[in-house]
């Protein structure tokens, strides 16, 4: 668990530093300043991803809350498209929403210590879907919370590289999982609670996509619900 603590600790420290740098950037308005800050945020995302992977290597599968929290923080950490001239409140919220799960993850990694679970199955497709769902769900949820609190009605998700990729991943990956289940078990759901959660989140996600061009509030509410179910699936 030492690498997890080191990676997560470094990421938390860098996130705090990013907060300080951003505050300075807003105090001395310098749009060019946010470009290197954005790079640092990508590095934070990479560090948190490394910490989640090292927690997995240490014995905590992606059904456990620790790697899920670190993954969620990793997905929220990178800046959104068009954040080179960001809104201060949105930026602060976005940083806080990454720092909270990263901090809780660091605390858990320290408190759990070197007592990983005795048994772990090899990485399965279901685990990959859960991990991807957690990350993307957290990113979507963060986007909706930031938009709601910062009272921005502009839907800027189309420019988000992570979300565009995630849209494709979430639309297709659970389907591939059911395909594998059909061949392996002869049924769509392999009887696990987590699979019903994933299916429900997937269905809500598609419902959100259906309402994208009609009702922004409904679209956001459904996106947030899908994100929440993806993040909490099986916990």
């Amino acid at each position: 668990m030492v690498p997890t603590v080191i990676f997560a600790g470094l990421a938390c420290g860098m996130l705090l530093a990013v907060g300080g740098m951003a505050a300075w950037g807003f105090y001395q308005p310098a749009p060019a300043f946010f470009r290197p800050v954005g790079t640092v945020r990508w590095m934070v995302g990479a560090l948190l991803l490394a910490s989640a992977c090292s927690a997995w290597v240490a014995g905590y599968d992606f059904y456990h809350v620790l790697p899920r929290l670190l993954l969620a923080a990793a997905a929220i950490a990178p800046p959104r498209a068009g954040e080179h001239q960001p809104h201060p409140l949105r930026y602060a919220l976005s940083l806080a929403l990454s720092l909270i799960p990263a901090g809780v993850g660091l605390y858990l990694a320290i408190s759990l210590g070197a007592n990983p679970p005795a048994y772990r199955v090899p990485l399965s497709l279901r685990e990959i879907v859960v991990a991807a769902g957690s990350g993307v769900g957290a990113r979507v949820l963060e986007g909706v919370i930031v938009s709601l609190i910062a009272h921005s009605m502009r839907d800027d998700s189309s420019g988000d590289v992570l979300l565009c990729g995630a849209d494709a991943v979430l639309a297709l990956l659970p389907g591939v999982l059911w395909f594998v289940n059909l061949l392996q078990y002869g049924k769509v759901w392999a009887g696990e609670r987590i699979e019903v959660h994933l299916f429900s989140a997937w269905v809500i996600w598609h419902a959100a996509r259906l309402t994208q061009s009609y009702h922004l509030w409904l679209h956001r509410a459904l996106l947030a619900s899908a994100g929440l179910v993806f993040v909490l699936a099986g916990l």
């Binding site: 959660h197 299916f199 429900s200 459904l222």
Partner: peptide, 20 residues
């Protein structure tokens, strides 16, 4: 309509979540 399909999908998802 898309809205009706979305409502049906959300209703089914909500019931599935409740069942778990």
């Amino acid at each position: 309509s898309d809205v009706v399909l979305a409502i049906l999908l959300v209703g089914i998802a909500a019931l599935l979540l409740l069942m778990t």
